[in-house]
Amino acid sequence: MDPHHSLIALSEAMPKTELHLHIEGTFEPEQMFAIAQRNQVPLQYESMDALKAAYQFTNLQDFLDLYYQGMSVLLHEVDFYDLTMAYLTKVHSENVVHVEIFFDPQAHLSRGVPFDVQIKGIYNALQDAKKKWGMSSKLIMSFLRHLSEDSAFGTLEQATPFLSWIDGVGLDSSELGHPPEKFLRVFEVCKNLGLKVTAHAGEEGPPEYVWQAIEQIGVDRIDHGNRALEDELLIKTLQERQLTLTVCPLSNLKLCVVHDMKDHPITHMLQLGLNATVNSDDPAYFGGYMNDNYASLIRHTGIQKTELQQLAENGINGSWMSKQEKTKHLTALFALFL
Rank of each mutant, 00 (worst) to 15 (best):
Y55T: 09
Q56W: 01
L60Q: 10
Q61I: 08
F63G: 00
D65F: 05
L66P: 07
L66S: 06
Y67W: 13
Y68W: 14
Y68S: 12
Y68R: 12
Q69K: 09
Q69R: 04
G70I: 01
L74M: 15
L74N: 11
L74A: 10
L74Y: 10
H76Y: 13
E77P: 09
E77T: 15
V78C: 07
V78A: 15
D79T: 03
F80T: 04
Y81C: 07
L83E: 03
L83P: 06
T84R: 03
A86K: 09
A86S: 14
L88E: 04
L88Y: 06
T89P: 01
V91H: 00
V96K: 07
V99Y: 03
F102G: 03
D104H: 06
D104S: 11
Q106H: 09
Q106D: 13
A107R: 08
L109P: 04
S110P: 00
G112E: 07
P114Q: 07
P114Y: 07
P114G: 05
F115E: 02
D116T: 11
D116Q: 14
V117G: 00
V117N: 00
Q118I: 14
I119P: 00
G121D: 07
I122K: 00
I122R: 00
I122E: 00
Y123Q: 08
N124M: 12
A125K: 11
L126G: 01
L126D: 01
L126E: 02
Q127T: 08
Q127K: 15
Q127V: 13
D128V: 03
D128C: 05
A129Y: 02
A129Q: 09
K130N: 10
K130V: 00
K131N: 14
K131V: 13
W133I: 10
G134V: 11
G134C: 09
M135S: 04
S136G: 15
S137N: 15
S137K: 04
L139I: 01
I140T: 08
M141A: 06
M141C: 12
S142E: 04
S142R: 06
F143C: 04
L144K: 08
L144A: 13
R145Y: 07
R145H: 10
H146K: 11
H146E: 11
H146R: 07
L147V: 11
L147E: 12
E149L: 05
D150H: 12
A152E: 05
A152T: 08
F153P: 03
F153L: 06
T155A: 10
E157H: 11
E157L: 13
E157I: 12
Q158H: 11
Q158Y: 05
Q158L: 15
A159W: 08
T160S: 13
T160K: 15
P161A: 10
L163K: 13
L163D: 10
D167N: 15
G168K: 01
